[in-house]
Amino acid sequence: MISEIADYFSRHGKDYLALLGGHIGISFISVAIAMAVAVPIGIAVYRSKIGSTIAERSFGVLRIVPSLAVLIILIPIMGTGVLPSVTALTILAIPPILINTVQAFQTLPKAMLEAADGMGMSTAQKFFKVKLPLAFPLMFAGIRTAVIEVIASATLASYIGAGGLGDLIFTGLSLLRYSLLIIGGGSVAILSLLTGFVLDSIYKQITKYQRT
């Protein structure tokens, strides 16, 4: 087994890096777009109960639809390949970011906002100096959830032609080549765990001030 694995890397090293890069690439783009959509919407609706409930419910539904279904549903509309994959991944990434953004702003401690008003901060100053920094940790937690979800679904997206490490797994399945299964599965697992670890470290850094 080990020799087979070593063999793969020596022969297909470049291909492997391309797959890895592709996987990271579509994950990154999807989360970036999701953030660009979800954060502004979250900030726009958090003050209104109706607005935030609608936003949460409509995207919350997505959590119940299996990710495989979301990927496959887009195919009749968009075909296969990178476009439907990135679209599906973005759609999957929006709920956790949106819900956390809304929650983050809704749970800001009132005493701090009153102090900010009382000392004479303008609305913009209050938003950038107080609200946003204090809301950021919870928003970040949502982003972390989204990233892990996207890396997982990107693996599936190989099935519909997105490229990425899933290719190794699906090839391994069709040829019943265990070495490919282990390399593919192992790479995705390590990528996911490493990313989680890095994001957790960042989270610990940005919330350092909360600990006595």
Binding site: A152, T155, I182, G186, S187, V188, A189, L193, G196
Partner: peptide, 16 residues
């Protein structure tokens, strides 16, 4: 940590 590993990856690792 196990939960955060994508399902397809875990499947792939255990099929052998």
């Amino acid at each position: 940590q196990i939960y955060s590993i994508p399902s397809l990856a875990l499947f792939a690792l255990l099929i052998p």
